[in-house]
Amino acid sequence: MKQLTFIILIVCALLMLKAAADLPDWADPASPASTHLSPDFLEQGYVETATPNIVTVVLADYRSYDTMFEAVVVFAAALIVMVILRHTPRKRGKTILYRPKREGRDTILQGAAQLIIPVMQIFALYVVGHGHYSPGGGFQGGVIFGASFILIALCFNLRFAIQRFREQGVLVCVAGGVLLYAAIGAICQVMGYNFLGYTGLASILGASDVMARSYGILAVEVGVGITVMSVMVSLYYDLASSGDLDEGL
């Protein structure tokens, strides 16, 4: 059976490798992908949104509907992991420890964590906020922010981290970020534009259409950042302790 799979896959691989000769060369400026839509994005993107980072513009404005569902995907993942792992009834008498019990305080580890975590969190906010001008944005910033909480859980223990960021709070953040995103879309609808048409925000913010798009992008990036941050934390809480939220790794 294994050999058969192997042979079939090899045959498919050879066929597809041979057919790949038909595709345009690497980095060919004349390939359809580089000539059909991308020039429009590159030439109009800045003019219409006053945001130099075109990846952010396409992500959070032209294709913001996709990005909203991307945030919904991580929201769903956090919800599913919680639903799968957290509903176990506490029948087992002894708690399973996932690491050897340590005696005393890890002074160096915890001291270093105390030094680095505030810097990490500030940097995460910078990455979210500076996504308009440099590589960055809600996802990247959110992941960095979430990592700071995971670092707390790793250097101290899971209980210590949960005391600082409770499970209920995590859940509110997970749903709240997506809610912020979708609510901005809905506000645009109320103002008489289509869903996620950020020009609808212009009259509320008192800004021009172009600047309204720029602010709209920032607002949805913040929503994405909140969701991604709390989803990372939520996934870590549940996976590291098999859903018991006790000792952790």
């Binding site: 839509l37 429009d40 294709r63």
Partner: peptide, 13 residues
């Protein structure tokens, strides 16, 4: 047809 974010189709969704 419904344009999301008021962008014309091939550019937007």
């Amino acid at each position: 047809q419904y344009r999301l974010g008021d962008w014309p189709p091939p550019l937007g969704i």
